[in-house]
Design a protein around this nucleic acid. Structure first.
Length: 280
DNA sequence: AGCTACTCCTGGTAGC
DNA sequence: TGCTACCAGGAGTAGC
């Protein structure tokens, strides 16, 4: 599933192909990808604009648009489960899953591919209201151990759903939460406010280390879905310690990796390294 | 506040 | 072989 490392990899690789390009045509095969806009309204808002910047915030790819050198809105692309962004020649076959296509000047086309149709490709005049709801960037300067300690202390939620909550911390998904909690040796069912300073420090370092390593590997490809915009699989799945490894040995202690369900999400823990909280 | 359940989707797979 | 049933999963929403 595209999480921060996969989304950042996507943004980095499409950026040089999009910067300065003008959107000359729009084709929408699945209107719901637009998040409420009609094809016609979307086309009107986007056609003729230039791509001024390509960024990322949380799991969103951000395409800042300009008209006549002035800011003219932002495309917020969320890949959700199976979304991809690729830049190809317009003549190249697009396949059955191309939901939105932006024809660009210079003989290129940005394609939003999405098998499961959960992804969104949405134009906003002002993206601030959406982006302001997100928590800090885990690889950014605001995500300090001090911040994490204070933020955890005032939450009573279980760690797993809290770390998946994008308004708490932006960019983590199921894979990297499980891997981070394993690395920090913390059970996903533990209450946020019960972590001591040592555990908070371990969690902070684990989140940073896991995301940085995954980013260096261009993300994780665990099924047919995630590929870089250039079609490569990521490599970090080869370094998973617990995610998708139920029944296999923990790489640290050899005990069996267990799969449980937390908040309707498959969750993976080492039965020995990650001690469950004492039940009431 | 924080939980659970439900919704959106489809390819893949298990079971028969 | 061919069919059906079920599953995964990010995030938004509703209800408690």
């Amino acid at each position: 599933m595209p999480e921060l490392p996969e989304v950042e990899t996507t943004a980095r690789l499409i950026r040089p192909q999009l910067l300065g390009r003008r959107i000359e045509g729009v084709r929408v095969a699945w209107e719901r990808s637009l998040g409420g806009d009609s094809r016609a309204a979307f086309g009107r808002r986007v056609r003729g604009a230039r791509v001024a910047a390509v960024g990322r915030r949380g799991k969103y790819v951000l395409l800042d648009l300009q008209r006549a050198g002035q800011p003219a809105g932002t495309l917020l692309v969320h890949l959700r489960m199976s979304g991809r962004l690729v830049v190809e020649r317009p003549q190249a076959p697009a396949g059955p899953y191309a939901r939105v296509r932006l024809l660009l000047d210079g003989g290129r086309e940005l394609r939003f591919l999405d098998v499961r149709k959960f992804g969104r490709f949405v134009f906003h005049d002002d993206p601030a209201p959406v982006l302001e709801r997100l928590g800090p960037e885990p690889l950014g300067p605001a995500f300090t151990r001090t911040w994490l300690r204070a933020a955890l202390r005032i939450r009573r939620r279980q760690l797993k759903p809290l770390l998946l909550d994008q308004s708490f911390l932006a960019g983590l998904g199921n894979i990297y939460v499980d891997e981070s909690l394993f690395r920090a040796r913390i059970h996903p069912l533990r209450s946020a406010h019960r972590l001591d300073g040592r555990a908070v420090g371990a969690l902070h370092a684990a989140i940073r280390d896991v995301l940085a390593a995954a980013l260096a590997a261009e993300g994780s490809s665990i099924d047919a879905f995630y590929r870089t915009p250039e079609g490569r699989a990521g490599a970090y799945q080869e370094r998973f310690c617990v995610y998708g490894r139920a029944g296999q040995p923990c790489p640290r202690c050899g005990a069996s990796v267990r799969r449980l369900v937390v908040g309707q999400r498959g969750t993976h823990v080492c039965a020995r390294c990650q001690r469950p909280p004492r039940g009431p």
